[in-house]
C-alpha cells in the first residue's frame, strides 16, 4: 500500500500562486496597451481639431495641420490595395481551389511564408531599387503603393485562404453535383460564403499598411510637401513618416511635439477604427451564418 504524502495543501498553494502570477502578468500586458493608448489620447486630443485635420503644415511643421499626410496615407492605402487585393485573392483561390497537393503548392506556400517574414526595411530597399531606380517610377505614389502592396500580399493571401478553407467541402460537392463548373462553383458558392472573412482580412491589412514607415522612406515619402498630389507619379507626405520626422528631426522638435501627439493619435485612431470595423464585421457575419 502506497503511503501518499499529504501534499494537497502545498499543491493547492502552488496552483494559486501560479495562477495569480499568470493573471497579473496577462493584465500587465493589457495595462501596457492601455497606457500607450490613453497617453496618446490624453495628449493628442487637445491638438486634434477640424483645422488640424484639414490644414497644411505651417511654420516648419510646428503649426498648422497634417492634411497632406492624411491624403498621402489614404492614397498609399488605396494604391497598395488596388494591387494586393486582387492579386492576393486570386492567388489564394488558385492555391486553395485549383492547385493539387504537391510540390508546387508547398513551394508557393513556403515562398509566401518567407515573403511574410521579410522585414519591412528590406521591402524598402527592394522597392527603391526596382520601382524607383530600375523601372524609373521615381519617388512616387506608384512606387510606394507597389512596395506596400507586395508587403501586404502575404497577409491578404493568408486571410483569404483561411476564409476559403472554412467553406465546408459539402457546398462545393453539392454545387458540382448539380452540374456547375468549377469556376461557377467558386463564383456562386465558395466566394459568397467566404466573402465576409475575406473583407475582414482586407480591412485588417489596410490597418497595417497605413502604419508602415520603413517601406515608404525611400519610395515615396516626402519630408515636407504642402500640396496635394496630382498623379500617381507625385511624391506625398504620409502620416507615419510625418510622425517620425516631427518627433526626431523636425526643425524644432520641442515646438512640434503637440503636432506629433496629434499625428500619432490620428494614426492610431485609423488603425483602431479598422480593427473595430473588422471585429464588428466578423461578429455580424458569424451571427448571420449561425442564423441561416
Amino acid at each position: 500500500m502506497i503511503k501518499f504524502a499529504d501534499n494537497r495543501a502545498s499543491k493547492q498553494r502552488k496552483e494559486n500562486l501560479a495562477f495569480l502570477t499568470f493573471r497579473i502578468m496577462s493584465y500587465f500586458v493589457v495595462v501596457i496597451l492601455a497606457v500607450i493608448i490613453l497617453f496618446l489620447l490624453y495628449n493628442g486630443a487637445r491638438v486634434i481639431s477640424w483645422d488640424f485635420i484639414t490644414a497644411m503644415p505651417a511654420e516648419g511643421m510646428t503649426k498648422g495641420g497634417i492634411f497632406p499626410a492624411i491624403v498621402g496615407t489614404l492614397c498609399l492605402v488605396a494604391g497598395s490595395m488596388v494591387f494586393a487585393f486582387p492579386v492576393g485573392v486570386l492567388s489564394a483561390i488558385y492555391i486553395n481551389e485549383y492547385a493539387k497537393d504537391g510540390l508546387f503548392k508547398r513551394f508557393v506556400k513556403l515562398m509566401t511564408n518567407n515573403l511574410a517574414g521579410i522585414p519591412s526595411i528590406v521591402f524598402g530597399l527592394f522597392g527603391m531599387s526596382l520601382f524607383v531606380n530600375t523601372l524609373g517610377f521615381g519617388d512616387s505614389i506608384l512606387s510606394g503603393s507597389l512596395t506596400l502592396g507586395l508587403l501586404t500580399l502575404p497577409v491578404v493571401i493568408r486571410t483569404t485562404e483561411e476564409a476559403l478553407r472554412s467553406v465546408d467541402n459539402s457546398f462545393r460537392q453539392g454545387s458540382l453535383a448539380l452540374g456547375a463548373t468549377k469556376l461557377q462553383t467558386i463564383r456562386k458558392v465558395v466566394l459568397p460564403i467566404s466573402f465576409p472573412n475575406i473583407i475582414t482580412g482586407l480591412i485588417l491589412s489596410i490597418g497595417r499598411v497605413s502604419g508602415e514607415t520603413a517601406p515608404i522612406l525611400f519610395t515615396v515619402a516626402a519630408y515636407f510637401l504642402p500640396k496635394l498630389p496630382h498623379s500617381i507619379f507625385d511624391q506625398v507626405m504620409a502620416l507615419p513618416y510625418h510622425l517620425y520626422v516631427i518627433s526626431t528631426s523636425g526643425t524644432n522638435i520641442e515646438e512640434s511635439r503637440p503636432m506629433a501627439y496629434g499625428t500619432a493619435l490620428v494614426l492610431i485612431a485609423f488603425v483602431l477604427i479598422m480593427n473595430i470595423i473588422a471585429n464588428l464585421l466578423r461578429r455580424y457575419f458569424s451571427k448571420k451564418v449561425k442564423m441561416n
Binding site: F4, A5, K11
Partner: peptide, 16 residues
C-alpha cells in the same frame, strides 16, 4: 501519478 501526488522517494518510485 506518484510524482504529482507528492511522492519523492526515487527508489520507491522505481520499484513501483
Amino acid at each position: 501519478g506518484m510524482r504529482v501526488n507528492g511522492i519523492t522517494d526515487n527508489q520507491y518510485i522505481a520499484e513501483k
